[in-house]
Design a protein around this nucleic acid. Structure first.
Lengths: 204, 204, 204, 204
DNA sequence: CATGAATGAGTATTCATTCAT
DNA sequence: AATGAATGAATACTCATTCAT
């Protein structure tokens, strides 16, 4: 028992340190230029141990992407608690951006895009679960606002895409081309402007 | 003289065939997986000749990206000729998408994103000249519509970004993760919906 | 006492299952491509236990080869019981081939040959005890036939080699280059022809 | 012209030195344990050049084996010139052994046997062209002796195998298990004894 | 005494770039 | 000016063996 739990603990701690190292490496260098040996070095394990935990570079990368899904998602609380649609949407936009910039999702997205040729499933999967998945949560979010009559009844699938597009154009798209891009000083104004446009059409 | 001009012509024809081959290769395989030897083969020159014209893979890639700028741009005619803002904006959106999907710009963008780690200048340059440059043309386009009173006076820098964001979210973003993504059947409806939202706020 | 004998029994049963697994693995994949981890898995023990019993891969292999000697040998009964030399020699040839093909000796020989560079002693040992050892038994076999006047008096060391050579050329040599080689349909005719040649010289 | 022939010369000289180095390496260490880097080093070329000439380790090995076929073969002259069958067969046996021991064929055969699992085609090919091919030449050789009435008319396919088997059993088989095995002092006596047995059955 | 996770040395192969002709 | 053979550095992955529990 003691032995088994000891091993599990050690193994899990190694697995965790590998995933951290791999996350950093993939985010920093993309899939192709990330080196397994370097990941092993950073994680302070041997390459063989690396391969015991993750059978291949692709598998390791997939695991990293998979794990990132857990950190994605639009908290729905604001939709039910906020007094106005503007307040709710502001909150959603900020949650979204915090994830992108805080959890390294921008860098991960660049890495995924880099490998659409080599590992196409990962890209398609991310499109479905990462991109569209989050859009679905925005839909749910908007549906709730409609229900609360803070928004007009309308096709929220369409409007969710429009809202996400306006936000991403200003803040996410630039990071794809410039990894050093930071959220600009006028971030709040830009968000507000997007929300205003959105509400001009869909506001109650 | 005759000899010199003959050589220049030959040289330029080789340069052209190299750029065509390189464009295809980079769009097809991304920067990293494009092979110089294959580009040389496709262009029917030796690798040494390739390197005479372009000192390195990065330089060749930069040249390809540079050349792509010429094919970008929002034709302004519609802004002055269209009867309604909706008509003008529909035309602009379609012009934009034709470039992205017709001239291989989506694939090129993926290639650029792949190399933001290795060759950051190319990415930053594309962001400035490719992405923002085109947005500037949208600004000009919108300014003209404002001047013609087809749109309300407003901050067109902001609105141009919003318009571009709504269009790109539906059609360009997916191609980043799935190179096989094609324009969907409901393309026109999506464009119209985006324009409707835009006009709810900025329509005259 | 009881404990000790229990342990010995367990240990010996493990040792036996290891040897079975290793025999199969070595015969199937040769020395180099046989994997210690796979042997452990097949034998249902840990790699550490494997190494407790056999200090190294070479040692394990040597043990397998050693064990194979027990299954080699030319039954002498036919030499005293057969009515004719032909009958006796036919019996001996078939006994020999049954061992080669039935007990996996062909595969084992391939494995040994594979490792003559790495573990030369095993090869030399097999040559002495496996190959020449069996030839000695053929010598004894022939001596008996001479004694019974079914064969002429002659140098049986020489004739044993000749007899073995004729049989092996047709049936064993091919398996060295083609593991899937099976005993051909005309096996008996080939054996008979070899015996005829043998008897032309050494028949009484 | 000068350029082209210069390149061909350089290229062929490199190819030759690679094949020499590879032959030595494969004969010394077998297929698996031969290292491409070491072959390159011995041949005084880079590994990349190695791969320009031979697309893979398997291909290189096949080329070595292929080249060895050229050095195999039973000279037919003795069959028509010798005064007696014994003289002719003695000559053939010695030619055969000189090839095996002089041209490193024994070592090459060990290498091929080592790889029957990994590269089965090479083994089967060698069986067909190397082993059986030479036996066919022995058949031709014997047919000529029959025609000259130095041997009785008989099935020379069968007798060729028997003759080869008797010779190989004493001299070739041992080298499979012991790379250091040398032709023994009594070589000539063993050959003569084999021929005597052969002639007892097939002599005119 | 048994375990199995961890090790690290070893190897085939690729590709941007250069150089002798 | 053009060639294409040659380079060498770089990298994913495997496996016999050991060691902490």
């Amino acid at each position: 028992m003691g032995l088994e739990s000891y091993r599990r603990r050690v193994s899990e701690s190694k697995r965790k340190s590998i995933m951290e190292a791999a996350g950093a490496e993939f985010q920093g260098n993309g899939f192709t230029h990330a080196a397994m040996a370097e990941i092993a070095r950073k994680a302070d394990v041997s390459t063989a141990t690396l391969y015991k935990h993750f059978g291949s570079k692709e598998e390791l990368f997939s695991s990293i992407v998979e794990a990132s899904y857990a950190s994605l998602g639009i908290p729905q609380a604001a939709a039910s608690e906020a007094k106005t649609a503007k307040e709710a949407l502001t909150s959603a936009a900020n949650d979204y951006l915090n994830q992108q910039f805080g959890a390294g999702i921008n860098a991960l997205m660049r890495a995924i895009i880099s490998e659409t040729s080599g590992v196409p499933e990962v890209g398609k999967d991310f499109l479905k679960r990462g991109v569209n998945g989050r859009n679905d949560e925005v839909v749910t979010f908007l549906d709730l606002l409609v229900k609360r009559k803070l928004l007009k009844p309308h096709d929220t699938k369409v409007s969710a895409t429009q809202f996400a597009g306006m936000i991403k154009e200003s803040f996410v798209w630039p990071t794809m081309f410039d990894p050093k891009f930071k959220l600009p000083a006028n971030k709040d104004a830009v968000i507000e402007a997007a929300i205003d446009t959105f509400l001009a059409r869909y506001g109650a």
